[in-house]
Simulated scan of single mutants.
Amino acid sequence: MIKYYDRKTQTYQTEKVAGEKMIRWTYTSPVGMRLLEAVVKKKMCSSFYGWYLDQRISRRKIHPFVHKFDLDLSIAEKNVKEFSSFNDFFYRKLKPSARSIDPHKDSLISLGDGKLLAYEHINLDRLVQVKGITYSLQELIKSPEVALKYNRGTCLILRLCPTDYHRFHFIDSGICEPSHRIKGAYYSVNPVALQKVEKLFCENKREWSIFHSDHFGDILTIEVGATFVGSIIQTYPPHQKVARGDEKGYFKFGGSTVLLFFEENKVRIDPEIIEQTKLGYETYVLFGEKVGVRGGSFSG
């Protein structure tokens, strides 16, 4: 059971997890772990399933998925009959009216929909995956020079579960460098998996880029793939000016994660999100929602 904090209602909710029983069996049983290492984490497995979800026949999975997780398709650009495949439905675009972007230029907004963790004054060699399990930024991006810029900075981790909107956006205007690709495995990014696989983010397929933002400094953006995520698709134009809220890319089917690293004293995260992170809870946020402001870190 995965609980998260809903700050609109100020209550804790239980997440509806796609394939929850299978995930728990895979990551907690001896047989499941052997199958995971031998088959599930391999590229071939995720690539084959991703190929199937690109085919027209996969459309039959859409209605059961929408019904089981009570998804609101009225906010999508296409209606349910217009999707050409399950993946077409999965990375669906939303109507412009579906999400509102906080209008204040000093507001730090969420890059997408998902469950958010936030860490301030980070130690580059002991980034928190879950309580008791850490990894280093150098291991994650394989570039010690770039990693060093973010010592004592701020880290945001946005986890997109399969039921979430799966496009991610720029949080500010600016210019983004090309994306660097790092090959890896395809472990789940579900909290159950994060508790079982050490340095999971450093094991999985991932991409990273530097975004030269106009108001928040140079932001290190890392997209991490997961089980059955056949592709991380970057749709932005490198070296060209983008506006706040413009699309950066999207994930094909599967749970996924985006990490943002800010230089020291560039942002202040909303205290409520920091407090929930310290308590061990993710906070549910939507694209465009304010999650912090420009400036130094909160004291204490």
Rank of each mutant, 00 (worst) to 15 (best):
S136R: 08
T154K: 10
C155A: 13
L140T: 04
K205A: 01
L200H: 05
E223W: 04
C202V: 04
I157V: 15
T227I: 04
T227W: 04
I122C: 12
V130P: 05
L200D: 00
I141D: 03
I133F: 12
A226S: 14
Q138G: 03
K131A: 14
L148E: 13
N204D: 05
T221E: 08
N204L: 04
P178L: 14
R126H: 13
E145I: 06
L160M: 15
E120M: 06
T221R: 15
V189Y: 04
G132H: 14
I157H: 05
P178Y: 14
A185F: 11
G184R: 07
Q138I: 13
A226L: 06
E139A: 08
K205P: 00
E139M: 05
S188D: 12
W208L: 04
D172C: 07
L137S: 06
Y150A: 02
G217N: 01
G174H: 06
L127Q: 08
F170W: 07
R167N: 14
R206C: 07
Q129D: 10
V130R: 02
L200Q: 03
D214R: 10
L200A: 03
F168C: 05
S179C: 12
S173K: 14
S213P: 04
D164W: 12
N204M: 01
H212F: 12
I182A: 00
S188P: 02
N190M: 09
F170R: 06
S143Q: 12
F216P: 02
S143C: 11
S209C: 13
L158D: 07
Y135C: 07
S136E: 04
L220N: 05
V192A: 11
F211K: 06
K205S: 00
R167T: 13
N190Y: 13
K199T: 02
G153A: 04
L156Q: 08
R159M: 09
V224W: 11
V146Q: 07
W208Y: 15
S213Y: 05
L194A: 14
I222Y: 07
D164N: 15
C155P: 00
P162V: 06
V130T: 14
C202H: 02
E223N: 09
W208S: 05
V192L: 10
G225T: 02
C161W: 09
P191W: 13
K199P: 00
N190E: 15
V146F: 07
S213A: 07
L124M: 08
F216C: 05
C161Y: 11
A185S: 13
S209H: 08
N151G: 12
C202K: 03
F216Q: 04
I210G: 01
E120W: 01
I171M: 14
G132N: 15
I222L: 11
P162T: 08
G225V: 01
Y186R: 08
C176P: 01
G174N: 09
